[in-house]
Design a protein around this nucleic acid. Structure first.
Length: 426
RNA sequence: GGACGGGUGGCCGAGUGGUUGAAGGCACCGGUCUCGAAAACCGGCAUACCGGUGAACCCGGUAUCGUGAGUUCGAAUCUCACCCCGUCCGCCA
């Protein structure tokens, strides 16, 4: 959600932002309707407040007469009429208001000026690190990890107990997951200054709306039967909502939180696309970074946080590239996003293992997260940022492929050896 | 899940139908006093929205006492539903 005054004061700027995302055509009528509703809403407010002022004055007069023991039945009758008219206006305004608010939630964030316009093809590789390993002779991770190979990944039994898109890690595979969690959280707390948090893995509707999964992406979420609760699609939701409806201490900004969580996604509409092995799951694990910042500092904070995510890949020795997403490929809540992609020589593709975004004040408005700049002045919205650092399954896939040896064994990077207890798999 | 108690401004805490946006206290800000500080005293101290020439300042209006709905000319105060907190019971990792 933006400052909805934008709609009133600079509708062209809003239209331009939608054009850069390539959604202006589909949203044009939404903009028009929102503008009309906003006019209605304000007209209603004026009329209603005028009438209410009259009703309040009348009430005072009734009270005065009663104190003086003068008959007030005529005024009470007038009040009754006013009150009925008021109820009429109120419901009219409430209708316009809720329609307007609902529409407001449909608008994506406005991308920053340095984000290229256009769709996926306009994405820009801004830098890369390490040397991608050539594809020749490297088997895809699902072959080396499966029951015929290392036996650390059990796709069939994961599917049996839950369904396709759910996996079981076994033995050193399970231990690898646990090692990654420890490695990443330790890195971010000890070297990057993040506060570690452990959070609920289910959230309520308000939290989902705060970070903008709702209402637009409700179909992608798992809901819990009988309760108005939802499995977290990313730890960004509970962590960003930790400070919903609060005013933060300006002196404590910027600040960062790191957490582990499983992530649950229905992936509605993504069936059949890159679904082999660990490429796309309904449940996966991830270490997530969330930062709160003042508006001034947030662009630099995005660079900083992206660097923190990159550090994970560098420590693991995995070649990667940093991609600045074009406006049309940038997530709904994000104003600017860098994807981190690691080369997977077995699959022969760059795999996205991290997505680092600044949501500017978009989520902060929805979730009402503010800070008081310079002591006494009015509270303003913080900027929220989030980034995976990193997601496990695709990272495991690239580890299994990048460090694969001719016989199918896999070398373990140094940083994981202490926690894993071995220096090679197989 | 059951029973009872409770949710009032940054905090504590009065207030059971009518100048109550809300007593009092604390905290905070400004001032007087003081060499300075403390104490004391004086004053200030919510937010959002609508409008007054779409700035700042100021002025008028409206809303807000957990949330929503209802009763009433009028609701912090009465009714209902829901949410949250506490205590006890049950159940349970």
């Amino acid at each position: 959600m933006h400052d909805l005054r934008l709609l009133r004061e600079r509708p062209d700027a809003l239209r331009d932002a939608l054009r850069r995302r390539g959604v202006l055509d589909t949203m044009a009528s939404t903009v028009d309707r929102a503008e009309a509703l906003e006019r209605d809403r304000r007209a209603c407010i004026r009329a209603e407040e005028e009438k209410r002022a009259a009703a309040n004055a009348l009430t005072q007069e009734v009270r005065r007469r009663k104190q003086e023991h003068v008959d007030a039945t005529d005024l009470i009758e007038q009040g009754r009429v006013l009150s009925a008219e008021l109820a009429q206006l109120e419901s009219q305004r409430a209708a316009a208001e809720s329609a307007f608010t609902a529409l407001g939630l449909e608008f994506p964030n406005i991308t920053l000026p340095d984000v290229p316009a256009g769709g996926e093809t306009a994405n820009v590789v801004v830098r890369s690190w390490g040397t991608p390993r050539p594809e020749g002779g490297i088997r895809p991770h699902w072959e080396v990890a499966g029951p015929e190979g290392l036996g650390i990944l059990d796709l069939a039994r994961g599917a049996k107990v839950a369904g396709s898109g759910f996996v079981a890690f076994r033995g050193l595979g399970a231990r690898l997951v646990r090692s990654l969690m420890t490695f990443m959280i330790d890195l971010h707390t000890r070297e990057h200054g993040y506060e570690e948090v452990w959070i609920p893995f289910v959230v309520n509707r308000a939290s989902m709306t705060g970070t903008a999964q709702f209402p637009k992406f409700a179909d992608d979420q798992y809901g819990i039967e009988g309760d108005d609760l939802f499995l977290v699609p990313t730890a960004e939701v509970p962590v960003t909502n930790l400070y919903r409806d609060e005013i933060l201490d300006a002196a404590a900004l910027p600040r960062g939180f790191v957490t582990y969580s499983p992530c649950f996604r229905r992936e509605a509409g993504a069936h059949g696309k890159d679904t082999r092995g660990l490429l796309r799951l309904h449940q996966f694990d991830k270490v997530e970074l969330v930062r709160y910042s003042t508006p001034d500092e947030s662009p630099a904070q995005l660079e900083l946080m992206t660097g923190h995510a990159e550090a994970v890949l560098q420590r693991l020795g995995l070649p990667y590239r940093v991609v600045l997403l074009a406006a049309g490929d940038t997530g709904f809540a994000s104003a600017k996003t860098y994807d981190l992609e690691v080369w997977a020589p077995g699959v022969g593709k760059w795999l996205e293992v991290s997505s680092c975004s600044t949501c500017t004040d978009f989520q902060a408005r929805r979730a009402n997260i503010r800070f008081r700049p310079g002591g006494a002045s009015k509270p303003t919205f913080v900027h929220t940022l989030n980034g995976s650092a990193t997601a496990f399954p695709r990272l495991i896939a690239t580890l299994l492929e990048h460090y694969q040896e001719p016989g199918g064994a896999v070398r373990v990077p140094d940083v994981l050896r202490p926690a894993l207890g071995v220096d090679r798999l197989g």
